[in-house]
Amino acid sequence: MQVLSRSVLLSRWAAIAAVVITVVMTAGGVAHAELGQPSNWQLGMQEPGSPVMDQVSWFHSFLLWIITAITAVVLALLVAVVVKFNARANPTPSRTTHHTLLEVAWTVVPVMILVMIAVPSFRILFTQLNTPQADLTVKATGKQWFWTYAYPDNGAFEFDSLMLQDNERKPGQPRLLAVDNEMVVPVNKVVRVQTTAADVIHAFGVPSLAVMVDAIPGRLNEAWFKATQEGVYYGQCRELCGRDHAFMPITVRVVSEQAFAAWVEDAKKKFAVAPDAGARRLASSAGID
């Protein structure tokens, strides 16, 4: 009786510890996550900035609870086995080799858990891959090591986007993520992002917008997002692409529809020529004529 009480007590403490850890992780993620960028001591994902990212964040929390429950149950069983069925507490072990109900349970329960995970997972995957009617198309070309953006729906202009050095950043701009020319899009509009690369494989990724798509030379991939809040969203190249892979950030500025229209008119004048300015700037900084 004493051994059984100890087993139950340890099981309860294990379950309580698992719940406390989960609550702390979840609360910490909500408290520290920022919109569009990482923050100090952040736990969890960045604050969602699009409907798809809302679903991804929900799915992440849903999986966290399932994983925590599974871990707690397994830990409780291990503790019970160690305490209740050791040689001292149980000197005459059972010789039972089959238990039909138990065998059915440990087959059916995992299948049910996998179905619970698969249904929302497939729904989110379908939403990400099924691009709706786009309001705007942006072509992002990955280069070593910067991005070139074009707006085929808005005129014949393109521009290069390079990371700002420490002495070029303004107050509030994060290190290694801020760029000189930002990708600008309107709020509450479906933006189709077409990606390709000019040299090696890159990847266009913006966490708060749930965008991650490879940029492959000779191939045109696409993803989409719909930013629901104005602000600045930061991302990076997510594919190991060479020496300066860590210095190839992505900055997406989401503005009102009126501000976007004004930006387009200004961009047509500012970026109408010299599409290879980024390459010349990199060559100049490296001392290459």
Rank of each mutant, 00 (worst) to 15 (best):
L10K: 11
R12W: 09
W13R: 09
A15H: 10
I16N: 00
V19S: 03
V24Q: 02
A27P: 03
H32F: 13
H32R: 11
E34W: 07
E34R: 15
Q37P: 01
P38T: 15
S39A: 11
L43P: 00
S50T: 12
V52E: 12
S57V: 13
W58P: 03
F59V: 05
S61A: 14
A72M: 09
V73Q: 06
L77T: 07
L77V: 05
A80T: 07
A80R: 12
V83H: 01
R88E: 02
R88T: 04
P93H: 12
W106N: 12
W106E: 10
T107H: 07
V115K: 00
M116I: 12
M116C: 13
M116E: 08
I124C: 05
F126S: 12
Q128M: 14
T131I: 14
P132C: 07
D135F: 03
T137I: 09
T137K: 14
T137N: 10
V138A: 03
A140M: 02
T141S: 03
G142C: 02
W145V: 01
T148N: 09
Y151M: 06
P152K: 01
D153K: 00
E158Q: 13
S161P: 06
L164P: 04
K170L: 15
Q173A: 08
Q173F: 06
L177W: 04
D180V: 10
P186E: 02
N188R: 00
N188P: 10
V193F: 05
V193E: 00
A197Q: 02
D199Y: 13
D199E: 08
I201C: 04
A203N: 03
F204D: 11
S208R: 08
V213F: 05
D214F: 09
A215K: 00
G218S: 13
E222V: 15
E222N: 15
W224F: 15
F225T: 05
F225R: 02
A227D: 00
A227P: 00
E230D: 03
V232P: 08
Y234G: 02
G235Y: 01
E239T: 09
L240V: 13
L240T: 10
C241L: 05
D244C: 12
A246F: 05
F247E: 08
P249Q: 04
R253C: 14
V254E: 01
V255T: 02
V255H: 01
S256L: 13
Q258E: 10
A262H: 08
K270I: 07
K270Y: 06
A272D: 14
G278R: 00
A279M: 13
R280N: 10
R281W: 03
A283V: 01
S285P: 05
A286N: 11
G287I: 07
